[in-house]
Design a protein around this nucleic acid. Sequence first.
DNA 1: TATCGAAGTGAGTAATCACTCATTATATGT
DNA 2: ACATATAATGAGTGATTACTCACTTCGATA
Lengths: 220, 220
Amino acid sequence: MERFELIVQTLFESNNLTEKQRQILKAAVQLFSEKGYAATSTSEIAKLAQVAEGTIFRHYRTKKELLLAIVGPFMEKIADSYIVNDLTNLLKKDYQRPEDLLSAIIENRRDIIVQFLPLLKIILQELPFHPELREHFLQLISDNMYHRVVEVINDYQQKGMLKKLPPTAIAKFAITNILGHLFTRYVLFPHLEWDDVRDTEQLIQLIMNGIGNSDSKVES
Amino acid sequence: MERFELIVQTLFESNNLTEKQRQILKAAVQLFSEKGYAATSTSEIAKLAQVAEGTIFRHYRTKKELLLAIVGPFMEKIADSYIVNDLTNLLKKDYQRPEDLLSAIIENRRDIIVQFLPLLKIILQELPFHPELREHFLQLISDNMYHRVVEVINDYQQKGMLKKLPPTAIAKFAITNILGHLFTRYVLFPHLEWDDVRDTEQLIQLIMNGIGNSDSKVES
DNA sequence: TATCGAAGTGAGTAATCACTCATTATATGT
DNA sequence: ACATATAATGAGTGATTACTCACTTCGATA
């Protein structure tokens, strides 16, 4: 199954969509991610979806509603189920060393980014221009993820495995490095040659040096 | 002087522009950064610049040429003079401790980002859709900055102040953290309350823990 | 098989798009 | 003051935009 089809299917599996509706969503995801929302016309979408232009407006009253019909469910479903649940599962496994948890998180995040890259590009592109999207996004993070992360960090700190810095600073540092790495790897320079195994190991080591307690430091 | 005027003046000080031309560039920078390039019409630009729409096309044959007339000089002048020269000056000062150099770089980068935020937003927005811009950008970095950075890292490593990791890994780690921090600080969540002094100190400490040699480690 | 609501169509809408061009205003050098 | 060039204009261009609507097709149920 091709890329955009997989995205639409994963994202709208619960909804029962018409064949034409799925084609519209698929075409919209592709064109929005390739050309940007504003630079994509509804006639283009209709043409690529092999659908009359009127069919688009039967299901989505405006072009923006089509965008929200794609981005909204992604942020709710994916950001909610994938990210939160998967992260929770990761945290539940009670990795003995924080670096093991880090490693699991990175691999998990890598899969999501690779699979949903086009959707992430759309969101990154449109977030600055739609304040309601930004707030929705922020709320998802602060409501669901923030407390869990702080909890886990506290836990590791009490076990003496993390420096006694403010948990928010540790979280921000780790997230910045993980997302920064994955962003440069898959968004900025995906065509460069990468040694993923080595890079990941190096990244974890650097992060752990930053936040880990010296007593249990990893030897180079 | 207002924000966009300052940007245009700084960027085109050497060129002798007509008053109308400066108004056009100023309006274009504002609208492109606020609404995005594709979502901004030439009639809007003309209206905001208080200029006939034809005047725009007297100076710039197409809308895209207007975009390149803004983004190109920024990348050449600013990225070349500001970033490269300032960084070179920073490096020349031979900061004894790498954390002092880091601190200076962060403050320097902060000023640039704050001053040219609208232009940076335009570039971040349009980079994915203009391969020639991306290559130009990449070349500027790899040609001018890469070697200098590696040199400095080597220097500090030989003085025993940095871990003997590959200089590229150290550079990537430091850059990721600095840009990641400034990005979240000024682009993602500029409206949140920040304690810049404390945050910067904390960031430097975390970075130094990651790459600094344990012998000369900063005590918490 | 008849019925009926939903799905799909495509020609048509006014508005707006980037861009042109003949004309007018302004600046400069002599 | 005059000539010449450049800057600026704004009405006008065809193409394209998001979107509408009267109509046809489809599919399930009775």
